[in-house]
Design a protein around this nucleic acid. Structure first.
Lengths: 218, 218
DNA sequence: GGACTACTTTACGCGTCGGTAGATACGGTG
DNA sequence: CACCGTATCTACCGACGCGTAAAGTAGTCC
């Protein structure tokens, strides 16, 4: 904003990425209704008609942000939890670590996804993403607990909600050094596993709890 | 809208309650920005100037909705969990039951409180209320676990988030008979206690109680 | 150098929405 | 019944924001 724009010519797809980045930032701060296309244009360092040329209408732009961020989050969690056929608890822990890591590194995208899009005309789309993530957890837990998927579903929703609550506290709290450890995201994941691990193990008849890290050691 | 216009005169406070009820309903569906004062007026069966006369400006109206719903929720949870000086787990279970019961009976107010107000100019106010509820849980857990409040805080956020996730699943799922039991809200609370109880007990070094503490049936 | 096109500036139409002024009707009171 | 306070309505204004059109400027490839 200080130095003037060199007015560079960029390939449409590159410019589109810039516009999307700016849109994610603005939407995360102002929400869908609160954000103006002028603000997106200003944030991208670009004129308003160009925003429309590259991003489409406001709804299309928001939907594009949504899909991009959702895809990134889901992909990282899937690749972390899906690989390896070892202990279900270990896979769960890896998935949660990826989840918290994605949150802390791309918190704007998270805010758009979870906070701003949960209401309004995009609730359905966000709900689909949420169900995908919850479904990941449900599959994992159903396999680990040895129960049908339908039974594991409420537990999966509980788990994801817990992760969400913990993440919100983490992202909004000021003193972020209270959770001692190496990587904050890993510490958060470990904390969550420590809270819900024993209970899930007890529910599953101990088929989940043979891992040393989680068992209430008794 | 077609036949009705009896144009009855009502006492200001009664009309104000009607306006607040309508506002909660509209705000819960559309959000703060998305909701229009005309929609509130139409929902209340009343003209727009009357909405302003009884509810004040849009921001004042929203803040009033916020305070009323938050007060109800907080009061019910407090009265359920605070009374009695018995087992902390029992108090926690009662608090959760009151929480889920309030959610299922007044889900519009919950939506306004948690979903719509978390962004925008009321984030601070809602955050304070949210921290009060989380603080209730934190106090309870700090006492039960025998740890300082600051340590219990992330666990409290995790717990409340888990309750939120479970509630959202419950409120949006179609087959709501999967959780067998008497009262759905009580069953949800018991499920949650079963999930997080053992983990919390292990963290607190068993000070939360042994086997009887976490059993789903009291 | 010439042409193509990404990009900007400026301006505007249009719909919606917050908020208000003045007219209207209701209902208790004498 | 006539009267008056006020609850309530119809109609309206100004502002804001989405979306676009028109015309000019400047990178970049041949």
């Amino acid at each position: 904003m200080t130095s003037e724009t060199p007015r560079r010519r960029l390939a449409p797809e590159v410019r589109r990425r810039q516009v999307l980045d700016a849109a994610v930032a603005v939407f995360s701060e102002e929400g869908f209704h609160g954000a103006s296309m002028d603000a997106v244009a200003a944030r991208a360092g670009v004129s308003k008609p160009l925003v429309y040329a590259r991003g489409g209408s406001k709804e299309e732009l928001f939907a594009a942000c949504l899909r991009r961020e959702a895809d990134r989050l889901l992909r990282s969690v899937q690749s972390a939890a899906g690989s390896g056929d070892d202990d279900p608890v270990a896979r769960l822990r890896r998935g949660l670590r990826a989840f918290f890591h994605a949150l802390t590194t791309r918190r704007e995208g998270w805010t758009v996804l979870w906070r701003q899009a949960s209401t309004g005309p995009f609730a359905g789309e966000v709900d689909a993403l949420r169900r995908q993530i919850v479904g990941e957890a449900a599959d994992l837990m159903a396999g680990g607990l040895g129960v049908p998927r339908a039974v594991a579903l409420p537990y999966a929703h509980t788990l994801v909600g817990a992760a969400e609550g913990l993440a919100d506290w983490w992202l909004t709290s000021e003193d972020q050094e209270t959770v001692g450890g190496t990587e904050p995201a890993d510490a958060l994941a470990d904390l969550l596993v420590a809270v819900v691990g024993p209970g899930l193990a007890a529910i599953g008849g101990r088929s989940l709890g043979s891992s040393t890290a989680v068992s209430p050691e008794r």
